[in-house]
Amino acid sequence: MMEAPPIVSGQPNTVSIPLLVIQELTKTFGGLTAVNAVSFAVEKGSVVGLIGPNGAGKTTVFNLITGNYRPDRGRIEFGGTPLAGLRTHRIIALGIARTFQNIRLFQRLTVLENVLAGCHYRMRGGILAAMLRLPSQRREENDGMGRALKELEFVGLRQQALALAKNLAYGDQRRLEIARALATQPRLLVLDEPAGGMNEQETEALIGLIARIRERGITILLIEHDMRLVMRACEKLVVLENGGKIAEGAPEQVRRDPKVIEAYLGADDEA
């Protein structure tokens, strides 16, 4: 598949074409409104941060985007295609990839096999091709392997390709999840707390990685609590509180928003 030419880092988004559009998105769980009429857009080539106190509904928004939950109301459009009613693997095939807040790797498989999962849907070989070991199947396997290794190289895990995923250090597991997501060749990468549990050094490396992903022309939407990362990596922030959107805009502007300050201070009081 041909990718659009990479956007050079630092080049401002003069024309903002929305890649992901969310309108009036609402989801309730047994009377509790987790997400309440939230609307925002993610522009092509940008890095957008979704922030807010714990329980604000951020992860629910992600799960609605990737089809893990069905919205009660509202719509989600990706590149002009409505995602309503699509199963998750179809949404991934359209070009959205994600990572999980509480790392979800295939623990007892190797690092390489984990990334090969991302290559899966672009491959064709079925039961018969595998059993007969057709030349086309072998070629495809080799190509997939090559792509998986490139992604491992990209996130810096090439050396651990044959280690079991469960034996990786915590930060490496997070990077492996990103490699697996990148292997699907997404247009939009959705990261759920990528810096969660990372130390300062690892977070610094992550910021670099996010920049490099962006250079590949991949749009990023991320949830993060680490404010330094959010302030440095994102050009737009969307702030949720109690399921509703309370602010949206450039990081500097959002940081000074009194409603945002209150939401965070309120949350700190409880903690």
Partner: peptide, 8 residues
């Protein structure tokens, strides 16, 4: 019984 959403 009551329906409970799976946590993801």
């Amino acid at each position: 019984g009551e329906r409970v959403a799976d946590k993801i």
